[in-house]
Design a protein around this nucleic acid. Sequence first.
DNA 1: GAAAGTGGTCTTTTT
DNA 2: GACCACTTTC
Length: 765
Amino acid sequence: MQTETHPLLTSLNPEQQRAVVTTDGPVLVVAGPGSGKTRVLTHRIAWLLEQKEAPPESILAVTFTNKAANEMRERIRRLVSDTAASGLVMGTFHSLGVRILRQNPYRAEELIDLKPNFLIYDTADQLNVAKEAIIHERMDPKQIQPRRMLSGISHAKSEMKTPADVTNDAMSYDQELLARVYHEYERRLRDLNAVDFDDLLTLPLRLFDADPRILEKYQAQFRYIHVDEYQDTNRVQYVMVTALAEVWQNLFVVGDPDQSIYAWRNADITNILNFQDDYPETIQINLELNYRSTGHIVQAADRLIRENRDRIDRPIRTMNPDGDMIMLRELSDQNHEASFIVDEIRRLTQSGRTRPDHVAVMYRTTAQSRVLEEAFRRSEVPYRIIGGLRFYERKEVKDILAFFKLLYNPADRIGLERIIDNTPIGRGFGPRAMEVLLDWAREHQRSPVDGLVSMAPSISPRFKDVSPPEITGSARKAAERIGATLAILQERREKSTLSELFDEIIEVSEYREQFRNGAEDDLQRWSNVQELRTDMERFDTLDPSEALTQYLESVSLVSDVDAMDEGDAGQVTLITLHSAKGLEFPVVFIAGVEEGLLPISRAIEAEPFDRKPLEEERRLFYVGVTRAERQLYLTCATSRISYGRFANSEPSRFLAGIPAEAMKSVTRRDSVGSARTGRFSGRQSGSLASRVQAPVSFDPPSSNEPMHVLPEFKVTQRVFHPKFGSGLITEVTELKNDVELAVEFQRHGKKRLMASLANLEIVES
DNA sequence: GAAAGTGGTCTTTTT
DNA sequence: GACCACTTTC
């Protein structure tokens, strides 16, 4: 066939080629890690544009993050041309949902009661609404946790259950409570003209139901539909995809059941497992050859994932050389762990072969990033943290954004309360006044912002026909002031760019007042505020009426990974295992490979009744391991501080799945471990590996304090200090109850330390 | 009403 | 150990 020689196909293996040229009908690509699925997706879309002459807007590609979408678009551009690729519809399910809602503003208002200027609430906003709903239902937010309720609501929404459905299906008292809270939560969201993340998926479907012609429009448009990371889609997403693909049936999904790590977010793995049943015509293509990682890494990954019972056996393999051994290193505590990682990265980068941006440090919980970050900060190794507290979730940033959101959507009472509570403008306006204002708003069917504006001293004839809210006493002045300020801002909004509006907001809100003290974190927070202004300048070229909509939308939909800036390379990446999905790095460290952390304790607790969470943890580890191209380090600590107290931990059971030939273990040999387990001489390396490969024993949980028996220190011995890093002992002085040591540290020079206090660890040579 | 102090909860992971 | 919500004090 002549297709064999087409330039778009030359760089692909036969299976990849087949995936690219099979353009008609349903296709399921089961793609192991590093098997080139992004390559397949980009080449296929290029193929559609070029060979099939498909118009770009007929091609939809749904990815897991917007970053992935942008990168794919870039790569397609390079394969075809800028113009040919513009107009492709690419993004996450959530951005697709917003797109559908925004493209049908009038129908959305008419049919699902969603006004065009709706806001997308983030988790903190949702929490506020949920809490209000709980109180309104006469429950106690301390007993009925808002987070629990939200997770129940999210679960219901991802299965497209309405509050009425939940009420009808309720099998327990808890579910009845959930139904009541859900009902009130929904009522409140609509009242606030706001939506949550799940609504971005369910509301478009409700719109389709209410007016099938809208759906038909999209069905006709999207002739070729692609879904990446299909194993992590949930029920609503499945329904949306199925609906959109119904006419053309050209549905191309890519995924890997072994990399499904979002069941907790209601992802439903049966979507991918049953794809063949849904579409009997399906052509399935398996990509199993790994191009990313060394032989040792691929072997380790293959072996460890085989431990999962609930799994279809599908080996991964590679033709790459074995490469370096995987390094397993046990350390005494989290500080040593962090210092080890930083020192090792420094060693790697000093050799010149590895650049800092080749390296990623991954961990199970965001809490682990703090200690790691401290170690990086002390060193000169540049780093960046993905995730944690997002920029847009910082208090000072949210405060300022609340003004923009309120100008955009005056019904945003939650935002108004935020402004009044947190910024100088709200001084003197207490809960009592708020109550009067909200009563007024309800009674007159107008927004609270209107109420305040109508109280401003010299105000427009807009409010001639309504009597302003009867706020009396000292709060009256405050209300008038707030009203006047909001009126000014509303007027400016029409003709100002976002950054002009920003300056105006800072001025009238006197927001800077709070940062006058000049304390260090005040400076930091003020610089965040200024960074927000810079961020907004990106949208200054847009028409003012469009800019605010687009900006607020972009703010709501960025993920942590989206915020990863390709520009500032040269930094080590610190990232959670979940966020690392889809990424790759030459060198990967996975920290905290311990029982209780990876697998997380909840999964261990659930295991006797439900194996699934534990298997998902193993898949998460698998995802981490397969991010590494040529070097993989696994670290664990013998004891670790969590919740502010010490706790001992065991190496993860998952390590038992890694073949000994692929992994080298370096164990601790100070006495914390041996005092506890009594079988930890550590004389020969590899003892840890033999231990973790033994069946897991049922040791009772050890006491909370680690026992400190001093190791034997000798001159010329290499040691490790949590703050100073690694060094050599140059002098040992025996004292009555202690040992005084002189240590020459690599970076901090010579220090004299008391062995009992220094928390030194002996490094195996 | 603001600032300082106190006690309870929390950490799994995120679009 | 950090954060939040709530109380006390001025």
